[in-house]
Amino acid sequence: MADKAIEIVDVTFRHKIPRPRFLKPWHSVNGPGIFGLNFALEKGAIIGLVGPNGAGKTTLLRVLAGINKIDQGTVLLDGTDLSESSESLGHELRSNVGHMPEQVRWSGRATVRQTIEQFAEMRSKTIDTHKLLKLVGLLSKRDSTLDELSQGMRQRLSLAIALMGNPKILLLDEPFNGLDPVAAKSVEKMIKQLASRGVAIIISSHQVDGLVDLIDNLLLIHRGQIIADGSIDQIETILGLDNRIELSGLGDIPPFETILENGVVIEQTIEATDWRCVIQHPDVNLIENLIARGHKITEWRRKSPDIVELLCCATGLEIEEIGMDIQPTTMVPLRNTGEEE
């Protein structure tokens, strides 16, 4: 069994929402957050954190970065339980975790090098600025002011700061935002290199297509709860999205309702001269059967669901709902603790 870089057990954190009252203007109530989360991150693993807007991805990353103090639960860093003292937990997390928040708008007249040095001082570390800037491709901009940086360069600067002090765990919130395709590829390559050196990495990204080739495991989160955790294949099986084939052919579409004994057609497109369909749990001899019946099959292949499909299936949401608005008809209920919410 691989070593665990970090493990969280039944961790809960809830945001405080101000609800001022006439005689108690500072009054606040518990709001959304993350609820009883359990997961372990192995050394060298890359985990993709995916969920709809407002699912709790950023909150989870902030908890792991030691910014948000947990309300309850246990955090084990390198197997050591740090939950006894919230101060030491926060400090240990901040010392061992590199955090790259989403879209930091660096601005001011300080140079890139001065900014790096500023954060190095905050970490009490001597940093090889040259090496770090070279790693993230900002060496040529080391004497540029923050105001002169493009969004992509600002992302690289955030990444450089997250990488300071050789963190054991790296948290990347939307790391590919604002990066051109070449820079995105180079960041991907760097992430893989870091993982091969044993750094555990969590990537929260909306650019889910790019994640498939990069991540080892997927963590689907919705309404502050983990709804699926594992490799994409494992999650496919859990959600019943495995064992699907995509068939294309010429001529009329075969009458699958009479041909299929077990399988189900879940998607079909009929054009003037050809057709395409996706069948779940197809019969073993389906292709031979179709050919024997005289149907012209032009292509067949295993159909893997993409991350969006997994997310839709796991949350019970439609793509439009995931992208635009969260409807109250979702499968996972909003958890509460029975007190004033």
Binding site: A65, R105, F119, S124
Partner: peptide, 19 residues
């Protein structure tokens, strides 16, 4: 806070009291 730099600062090991 507005620019997101506060989040980077708060994620550093330097205690908040010292900050």
């Amino acid at each position: 806070r507005f620019s997101g730099v506060l989040e980077v600062k708060l994620s550093q090991p330097m205690p908040r009291k010292h900050q």
